Computed example of a mutant assay.
Amino acid sequence: MATNGETVGIILIEDDDGHATLVERNLRRAGVSNGFLRFSDGQEALDYFFGDPAAADDATGRPAPRELTNFVVLLDLKMPRVDGFEVLRRLKTSPSTAAVPVIVLTTTDDPREIARCYELGCNVYITKPVEYDAFIEAVRRLGFFLQVVKLPPGHPLSRP
């Protein structure tokens, strides 16, 4: 998956280990072989993006946020501690992350929640089918989309 000569990474913010495994495995099967970072709840993601920059360089093995250039966030809504709505709001209102593409990937198909996500600035909203085979097919199609999507030239995240 290349855009302007660079690869696009995936940041998956998903609390369900089973869903996270299925998403990563099936995106890879669809040809998305780039880096994956996974956060298991919204607070963990917010700490990564907006916490102490020195703490991001700890022993997690994750690149520091300032090292990321081209990436897409796949975001679940229903998570413990901090939900996906708050993560989306923070990402889109902060100048350092406002341009980051956010794809909401959730089981919720409530029209009010869909509208709220777009109002908060999500780029794409995808409902995860509850049925296993349909879920796998949806992720596979997302993988094909991620291989052809074009992003603006990557710029490292700025830190205040």
Rank of each mutant, 00 (worst) to 15 (best):
M1I: 08
A2L: 08
N4Q: 14
N4G: 12
N4D: 05
G5C: 05
E6A: 07
T7D: 09
G9K: 11
I11A: 02
I11R: 01
L12G: 07
D15K: 03
A20I: 10
T21P: 00
V23E: 08
E24Q: 15
R25P: 13
R25A: 14
R25S: 13
L27I: 08
R28K: 14
G31D: 06
G31E: 02
V32R: 02
S33C: 13
S33L: 12
F36Y: 11
F36C: 07
L37S: 11
L37D: 12
R38Q: 14
R38A: 14
S40G: 09
Q43W: 03
E44P: 12
E44S: 14
E44V: 03
E44L: 05
E44D: 14
A45L: 05
D47G: 03
F49K: 00
F50I: 01
F50C: 03
G51Q: 01
D52C: 10
A55N: 05
D57Y: 14
D58W: 06
A59Q: 14
A59F: 12
R62M: 09
R62L: 08
A64K: 13
A64N: 14
P65E: 01
P65M: 02
P65A: 06
R66C: 03
R66H: 10
R66K: 14
R66V: 02
E67M: 13
L68M: 06
L68K: 02
T69S: 11
T69W: 01
V72P: 05
V72H: 12
V72C: 14
L74D: 01
L74T: 03
L75T: 01
L75W: 15
D76F: 12
D76A: 07
L77D: 04
R81K: 12
G84P: 06
G84M: 05
F85H: 15
L88A: 11
L88M: 09
R90C: 06
R90F: 00
R90L: 04
T93P: 11
S94Q: 03
P95T: 01
T97L: 00
A98P: 10
A98W: 02
A98E: 02
A99W: 02
A99L: 07
V100Q: 00
V100A: 00
V100G: 00
V102H: 05
I103P: 03
I103N: 07
I103K: 15
V104Y: 11
L105W: 06
T106Q: 07
D109H: 15
D110T: 04
P111C: 03
P111N: 03
E113Y: 10
E113W: 05
E113T: 04
C117M: 09
Y118S: 07
E119C: 10
L120E: 07
L120C: 08
G121M: 11
G121H: 07
C122Q: 04
N123H: 15
N123A: 10
N123K: 13
V124K: 13
Y125S: 13
I126G: 03
P129W: 00
V130P: 15
E131H: 13
Y132W: 09
Y132R: 15
Y132M: 12
A134Q: 10
A134D: 04
A134F: 08
F135D: 02
E137M: 09
A138M: 13
A138T: 09
R140M: 10
F144I: 09
F145A: 15
L151C: 07
P152N: 05
P153Q: 11
G154I: 01
L157I: 07
L157E: 00
S158R: 06
